[in-house]
């Protein structure tokens, strides 16, 4: 184990600070993609980091640290998703409870609006997936982890990861197809048709 991780384990505040600073953004990114809500993601990220530091004695120093800490974050998010009751996200909602689009900061409000709608669409697609598939998609697309590293986080084999990735994409594709059929496609044009998308 690296020396500063050992120090963090023994309560050295500087080492703990270094650990949190290094891994807080990737952990938060994963939580945000998994949970889709800023405040809850922040809370989950904090809990995950606390658990990581308090359980450093269980970390295998032979393995990379980032997948280990992301695994804790992923488990925290999956637990929260399972416990979750249906709620309405308050992000972007005004004090009176009405949806409030914050104009004035963007030079191009229309593109900003389109961009926001796409993010909402992505989040809805993610939330249609089982939690573990959501983790795999998040780690593959936004954390840039290799199949091996995703395996470290999720405990899945490489073939299982590939299978889940494909299955998750297919579920999301079916959502797009159905939204196209209903004529409410906000996902952009078909210019990507025939595009080979995975290297």
């Amino acid at each position: 184990m690296e020396e500063w991780l050992l120090s963090a384990q023994h309560g050295d505040e500087a080492a703990v600070n270094r650990l949190v600073t290094t891994y807080q953004q990737p952990v938060f990114n994963l939580c945000y993609r998994m949970l889709g809500e800023y405040t809850e993601a922040e809370d989950a990220a904090q809990e995950a980091l606390i658990k990581a530091v308090l359980n450093l004695h269980a970390y295998d120093a032979e393995r990379p640290f980032k997948p280990w800490v992301l695994r804790i974050a992923s488990n925290e998010c999956i637990d929260r998703i399972r416990r979750r009751k249906p709620v309405v996200s308050l992000d972007g909602m005004g004090e009176d409870g009405a949806w409030e689009w914050q104009a004035g900061h963007s030079p191009n409000p229309e593109s900003e609006m389109l961009h926001h709608e796409r993010q909402v669409e992505i989040q809805e697609m993610l939330e249609s997936l089982p939690p573990l598939d959501r983790t795999v998609i998040t780690l593959f697309y936004w954390e840039g982890l290799s199949y091996t590293e995703i395996g470290e986080v999720t405990g899945l084999s490489i073939s299982a990861i590939k299978s889940r990735l494909f299955r998750a994409r297919r579920v999301m594709a079916q959502l797009i197809v159905s939204s196209n059929t209903l004529g409410s496609n906000t996902l952009g044009s078909n210019t990507m048709e025939e595009e080979r998308y995975v290297a």
Binding site: Y141, R170, E194
Partner: peptide, 26 residues
């Protein structure tokens, strides 16, 4: 289906990163 899969891939790859954490988070 292939078109839809391509759209999914494009959407995921071009999604904006999550917001930054609050300064006092650390």
């Amino acid at each position: 289906e292939w078109t839809a899969l391509a759209q999914v891939d494009m959407l995921l790859r071009t999604a904006t990163p999550p917001p930054m954490l609050a300064p006092d988070f650390t």
